[in-house]
Design a protein around this nucleic acid. Sequence first.
RNA 1: GGUCGAUUAGCUCAGUUGGCAGAGCACCGGCCUCACAUGCCGGGGGUCGCUGGUUCGAGUCCAGCAUCGACCACCA
Length: 877
Amino acid sequence: MTPPSPSAPAPIADRYEPAAVEERWYPEWEQRGYFRADPASAKPPYCIVIPPPNVTGALHMGHAFNLTLQDVLIRHKRMDGFDALWQPGTDHAGIATQVVVERQLAAEGKTKDDVGREAFVARVWKWKEESGGSILRQLKRLGASCDWSRLRFTMDEGLSRAVREVFVRLYDEGLIYRDDYIVNWCPRCQTVLSDLEVEREERDAEFVYIKYGPLTLGTVRPETKLGDTGLAVHPNDPRYAQYVGRTLEIPSVDGPISVKVVADEAVDPEFGTGVIKVTPGHDPVDFEIGKRHGLPIRTVIGFDGKMTAAAGKYAGLDRFETRKRIVEDLQALGLIDHIEPYRHAVGLCYRCKTVVEPLVSKQWYVNVKPLAEVALAAVRDGRITIIPPGWTKTYDHWMENIRPWCISRQLWWGHRIPAWHCDADGSIHVSRTDLAACPTCGGALRQDPDVLDTWFSSGLWPFSTLGWPDETTALAKYYPTSVLVTGFDIIFFWVARMAMFGLHLMKEEPFRDVYIHALVRDAEGQKMSKSKGNVVDPLAIMAKYGTDAFRFTLAALAAQGRDIRISDERVEGYRNFANKLWNAARLVLSTLDGYDPAGDTAPAGLPGRWVASRLQTTIVDVRQALDAYRFNDAAAAIYQFLWNDVCDWYLEIAKGALYRSDDPAGRQRVQHTLVTVLETTLRLLHPFMPFITEELWQRLPHQGDSIMVAPYPTATTAADADAEREMALLMQAVTAVRNIRGEMRLSPAQSLTVSVKTAAADEPLLRAHVGLIEALARAKITIDPRAVRPPASALGVVGASEMYVELAGLVDLAAERQRLEKEIKRTVDAIAFTRGKLARPDFTERAPAEIVDKEREKLAEHEALHAKLVASLSWVG
RNA sequence: GGUCGAUUAGCUCAGUUGGCAGAGCACCGGCCUCACAUGCCGGGGGUCGCUGGUUCGAGUCCAGCAUCGACCACCA
């Protein structure tokens, strides 16, 4: 049973007012179940998983852009007969969410340690419950047709089970392991970060040359001198060969230290003095060198960013303060050779921008190398297609150079690592279920305190949301998903991880296509950020211009570049487009009296055949563009057709028949053409502008309950080339008169007298549609193959025919003479250019025949026009 | 240091196998023509960053240069 359509306000306003329409339709669609996929249906599947937004976040421009594109695809495929599933969900966003709640606590004068782990996590859950609905409401506001009955959260029960399953499996396969390694540590967030979570920033620093006994070397981190356990030189460096293998006793700030000199390929002999100090505890390169040469690790900087007890008299001092002090102290001891200014990249925490400290600690890792090889192959052999293809190289490069992924985080909010430590016998047990006692010794266990990197769970998203590890019907039907739509900023974080996990665990790629879109910037091209205060709120834009206008703007801007700029002016333009559509529909609806849906359906006359043909072409163009993810082309095709072809030409032409009552049958056919064209265009446009199209579709004669579930238009006939050519000639005639009117500054109210000297081929056509030309050009037209040009007339060229617009008593003939002289000069130039081209044998002999013919035609046209213009001069004079 | 991208009208940008340079906005002129002034009609405006090359023909392909930008990177 079809629920009743929401009642529409009776009078149709002359401006489109989006708010009421949007409020009315979204709940209606949802309630009717249109958003729901049906794994049991026989329809072919089409599935997109949403990039899960932060559960406690708010909708920003990036979301709006990303979601609009997905909704366009999903609505298109749903209308096109697919069982379309847009899988929604949210992400727990580990560190981001934890930081927010920590801030809330701070406002109460408390820290997370004051409340304790359990209470803290409970509090985050509470915050999630309170604020988690906000982002979802905002998605709905945008019109997103997600299947809300399948809403998931990265920390819900099912997904948590998937996370454990994956962890245990990879552990059992030896792909997850613990290791003492040098990591990126954020002293403020008090957690380890993956390589991806470290941002690089160029900064000015001092390059300090320090004397190390007989050697001198440069460093930007003098404070780590306290942790030095070696020096390194290049193995082939003759300058230092004598020192390799020796242990040097050298004076330092806190008494003499002994360092071993080693030879290592990692040293660049060209840089600095060709000697480096080796601090295995505080530098990744040094850590590797130390490992290779058995140098001890000396940790002098702690997890709090302050010097440790091992730093002697500097213990407890901040690391940057220590840097200054050490330089001063070395200076005093005469151990500084000299200092140079230096610019280099420092690593910053992506969250809080604190300088990351490389520190050695024990963490959990995934050996992603073997997974990456499979993920690389999937793209190479075409199982996954990246669009635009330029991003493939970025993906490849990262995959090829991938390093172990550090997945443990010293946070409380997230998936706790399913590993239990037995303090009694030191054993570690990884398990799908919680363990109470040590399986080896029966002793007490404590669960690993760390949680997993947020991206570990989002990496499972394409299959965990469909029910994995259970073998659900949804998983069987919708995996692999059809396309993943996302920005290039998370290719590594997310796309790469999903590819690796999906291929490894499901043995099949998680998505066939990856559509990488641009990032949204403000009108000046600046990245939007809260600190810059240039954040444009999508909700404000929607409130001001309407959701449809906003969505259409995003689609129209979605060219496959690096970034797009959004501005009010642009949205306003498409708001006007929505209004144009509204008014076009208003015109049609107001002239539907006597409309008989069963009446004559043949397009009415030449204009009818023409607009029908243009519609067919538009359908083909839009479909092709959507299939290729060329959203901007699709949007432009509809915009152009609706505004220029339908509104500017066809509606104006149709008015003639609609406002006349002497030809009921003709009127009937025009009504039919109008209804068909408009109704079809609405369906074509629906994925982009869901609300206004539904509202108007419901008011027009239609079949079905909702445009959302109506079929997407299909081209039924080929374009009508004859109609297009013939209409082009009529339009040219109208434009020619209007053009003369404009150039002569004649009022539109001024009716003109025009005679047309028709060429034989065009006479029947022009004669048959003289009324149409007269109406659109506001002129009295006489057709006569033997017409003689009247004195003081302007010439219009229409195909092979000529048009004489009488100007006597209407215009300044001297000005017209001037204009003609200018025109003549232009044709003379064009003729010279084309003749020159045709005179070159290399062109005429080697270019394809049709190109040469085209040039010849062009020349003939120029010559004919020239002759006519010259003739015109005498008429004007 | 490496990789990739951008450079087209005043502005923001399209331009998919090389074949007559486009759109929106802005601008100029004329219109309250009974769907729409969030509108209608007409118009002006571009050595397609620079220099070479390939080609009958280059905005498009190749090489180099310049400027801007993004990403990756363990020269301390």
